[in-house]
Design a protein around this nucleic acid. Structure first.
Lengths: 342, 342
DNA sequence: TTGAAAGCGCTAACAG
DNA sequence: CTGTTAGCGCTTTCAA
């Protein structure tokens, strides 16, 4: 079989425990011995057995990453590679590995999380989504297992949970105000799945901005859709069938905006001449739409990076207070918004 | 600490080994005992410790997934979530977990792979890319460690390696022929990074189709670019600066096509009236471009699914012959190609 | 500064 | 059909 610590010990003429100490770079080992052992390790091409290590010191140096149910197309959103890139970046720095959930349904995912936690397969968990009343989150919380969520817990009272989020309420509010300042009065809102906290936050921000300006939010201007591209297209049909068409739309997600714009183009409604659009995320391709879209950059990479950072901190110092990190967003003006014509 | 197999054994009044056998659902245990043990497990909320298990039976039930260097933006390509979805799907079925590489550079990744392999962190590895003369692939091969690659090894002599691929040569050839049949004579080729085998295959197919029709491939019609969106844009500048502009382009990747079309639109060159475009992959958003793009569906999900399938097969039966699976592709005609006007 | 020995939680002969 | 025992490869007291 492969080379073990004993082989190294034999070659270096020391005890296995000494080798172990050299691996951990213990200060209580003489430099001469360290040299000798390291040479033996190199000569033999030794790599520590990961499972033995984890078993002995009860730590895996790996982070569990839980995706939302990958069954539907939401998953193809470039959002995911980008958060993962952020997470990877920090994890790699601190020498943590990444273990991915594979479940397709909520039940499967819950089962997986349980196994990860109880089976000590990971040291901590990052939730890539925040759903209203999420079972997984509740479970992790009650188990007192280190975890962070990207987004935020739905019930605000729960300050115990560490999360990394954008100020989605504020972002949506600003965006609405911007449209208002451009003279738009009939602004529609196309949200994602209402089970996700981000959707709720967006909507609140949108409504508040309207109300502050004395405009009563109209229910028929507010639609939600699960599916990214089909959703965007359906939303457009609904909205454009209204007798009083909106002159501007706020869309939950850039990818959805692609769907929206596609449908608008089929209806020969011109953006931004006939209707203005602004959305969220600023994924890579957002600037490649036709016309390039105005959107809110939420720093996806940063969300992932900070989530990993907070989680590892929590793993190392379980006693520290839960943190709530807000990643700044930034409006990126491109060419889908215009002063209302009339 | 947590509940161990011993606790279960005590409660169920059996030996730990019996519990172990129940977990493995050994046929040599009486149904009555199984019931008893399972009840005890449920009562105690027992979950097997993953590392102990792996250590004892030398198998981790996890697959390593190696991404190309995630440093650059290539990574935001929706291709990745989609292959991973495919891999996940099969892996989850067969109760395998996924362990992700986090390295940003080739050196880091190579280091990681070594650790995974020698540290017995995973049972097998899936390479998400196939680079010409790849060190990782060579290493895995010489270590005789189970792995599959998505794409194919660059040197065709090496039939030892299991891979899952599309017939990229054929696809590119067909696509070129299609353009030829539409009357195009000046067809450009915008490829990806020439280090990737897929790029070479595409180019060969393209050239062959031209030559078969008696058209000599022109070097100035063939360009390569690393970066997805910038690359697409630069390519267009180069090509459109030529005195004899091409009337059609074959683009390596849908996302790149977004960049291409963006630039074309800025130059007020109309697709497909002035120029036809056809590309590869058919990611989710491909149908949302303006106009919707004609592209080759390569069944990304299928690539991932089959790769996981082959890998697990190889893990379970190391002696079986290496396999070479070709996932069928399919041209999806949308609105970026048109009979040449004149 | 180093070695001996026990143990992490599980599996796998080998007995019976 | 089930129990006993000896590891898997590492870390970590405890002694020296």
């Amino acid at each position: 079989m492969s080379i073990t610590i004993k082989d190294v010990a034999r070659v270096a003429n020391v005890a296995p425990s000494t080798v172990s100490r050299v691996i951990a770079n213990s200060p209580r080992i003489s430099d001469r011995t360290k040299e000798k052992v390291r040479e033996a390790m190199k000569d033999l091409g030794y790599h520590p057995n990961f499972n033995a290590r984890s078993l002995a010191n009860k730590t895996t140096k790996t982070l569990g990453v839980i995706m939302p149910n990958s069954a539907n197309k939401t998953f193809q959103n470039p959002f995911f590679p980008e958060v993962i890139r952020g997470i990877s970046s920090k994890a790699h720095q601190l020498e943590y590995g990444l273990y991915l959930s594979t479940g397709q349904t909520e039940v499967e995912i819950f089962q997986e999380v349980q196994d990860m936690v109880q089976g000590r397969r990971v040291d901590g968990i990052i939730l890539l989504y925040s759903r209203v009343n999420d079972k997984v989150m509740a479970y992790l919380n009650e188990q007192d297992f280190p975890f962070t969520v990207i987004g935020r817990p739905s019930d605000e009272t729960n300050r115990e949970i560490t999360y990394v989020n954008n100020d989605n309420y504020k972002a949506a509010k600003t965006v609405t105000e911007y449209l208002l300042l451009l003279g738009h009065k009939r602004i529609a809102f196309i949200g994602g799945n209402l089970d996700f906290v981000v959707t709720v936050d967006h909507m609140e921000g949108y409504k508040t901005a309207l109300i502050n300006t004395g405009i009563e939010p109209r229910e028929d201007y507010i639609v939600f859709h699960e599916e990214l591209q089909e959703g965007g297209q359906e939303a457009v049909i609904d909205l454009m069938s209204l007798s009083e068409r909106p002159t501007a739309m706020i869309v939950a997600d850039d990818i959805m905006t692609f769907g929206v714009m596609r449908m608008l183009s089929e209806m020969e409604i011109s953006v931004p001449n006939d209707i203005s659009i602004i959305s969220f995320n600023n994924v890579m391709i957002s600037e490649l739409s036709h016309p390039p879209m105005t959107t809110v950059d939420i720093n996806i990479f940063g969300l992932g990076y900070e989530a990993a950072n907070c989680l590892i901190e929590k793993i190392i110092h379980p006693e520290i207070e839960p943190k709530h990190v807000i990643i700044p967003h930034k409006m990126i003006k491109r060419q889908t918004c215009q002063r209302v014509s009339k």
